[in-house]
Amino acid sequence: MTELATAIIDAHGGLDRWRQFSTLSAHLVQGGALWGLKGQAGLLDDTTVTIDLTQEKASHAPFGADQRRTLFTPGLVELHAADGTVLDSLPDPRASFAGHTLETPWSEAQLAYFAGLAMWTYLTMPFLLAHPGVETEELEPWDADGETWRRLKVTFPADIATHSTVQTLYVGADNLLRRHDYDVEIAGNTAGAHLISDYVTVQGIAFPTRRRIFPRQPDGQPMAQPLVVSIDLDAITLA
């Protein structure tokens, strides 16, 4: 890892502390234009996500009505009934997005795939920088909101399902995340600027609890509208 990657991890609680835990759960309240645009409004407005910290795996519950829940892994998505019955499954889920644009509707299983990879990426970052095969490179700084943010280019290996192979992190003078850029490959490479704030410390790990995602313009600046996704987190638990 680069010096900056190490400093970011240390600022969020350190790798040794992070590796004491194997699961994380958080209550989410979500909004924004994306869910309706994809034909799936309301399913994830108020839910709890649970992720595995030892492998890429996530579950949202409830997922819509009837106490359904999801099971996401990079190679398979399942929708489960409250009693565990498999209601739907999508093998090789990423291949199902071939030819998609931002406006292409998603099935429920495709929504579960996106939500799973997104929340697993968000909640394991920045500790994900230490994953084998992840490469980092410091970029030139960025001026925003009266501050100068350091920037880190992150290149992910093929075994990690995430928004895009190359992403960019922005951090303040305290080395806490301020912004996270990516291109959503499964939605026509739509460019996003993900603004991060309102940190809390849980069991020695620093977590942002407010996330707002806007379109990213060609000059790198986020657009003021539309709000693509909003995520507010609470009840964060590590075990």
Rank of each mutant, 00 (worst) to 15 (best):
H60S: 07
G146K: 03
A95D: 14
G99W: 09
P157H: 01
G39Q: 10
F63P: 02
L43M: 11
K38Q: 06
L79P: 08
V86D: 09
T155H: 05
G84S: 02
M119L: 14
P126S: 09
P91K: 10
F72K: 01
P62Y: 11
V154Y: 06
F114Y: 15
L139A: 08
E56W: 10
I160P: 01
P141D: 09
L53F: 02
D46Y: 06
L139Q: 12
D83Q: 11
W106G: 00
T50H: 01
T121K: 01
P105L: 10
H80C: 09
D45M: 08
A82K: 11
R68G: 00
F127H: 14
A158Q: 12
A115M: 12
A109Q: 03
T47S: 13
G146T: 10
K153A: 15
A58M: 08
W106A: 03
V86K: 00
F97H: 01
F97I: 06
A98F: 04
P126V: 13
V29H: 11
T23Y: 07
E137K: 15
K57F: 03
A109W: 04
A82V: 07
L117N: 00
V134Q: 01
T50Q: 05
A118N: 12
F63C: 05
V77K: 09
V29D: 05
V134E: 06
T136E: 15
A26D: 02
G84I: 13
T85Y: 00
D92S: 12
A61Y: 06
T121G: 11
I160W: 04
L34G: 01
S96D: 05
L90S: 09
A26S: 14
L34Q: 12
K38T: 03
D45K: 14
A61N: 11
H60E: 06
T162C: 14
L79Q: 03
V49I: 15
A95N: 01
V86R: 02
V86H: 03
L76P: 01
F127G: 11
V86Y: 01
G75N: 14
Q67E: 15
G133Y: 13
F156S: 09
L128P: 11
G84W: 09
T48A: 04
A161L: 12
T73N: 04
R94G: 00
G84K: 10
G146S: 07
V154D: 05
T155Q: 10
L129G: 08
V134Y: 09
L128S: 14
S59D: 02
E56R: 12
K153V: 08
E103W: 01
D159F: 06
M125V: 06
G36E: 15
D46K: 13
S96G: 04
T121V: 06
T124M: 01
L28I: 14
F63A: 08
Q110I: 08
A58H: 10
L123A: 03
T48F: 08
E138Q: 15
T124N: 11
L37H: 02
W35C: 02
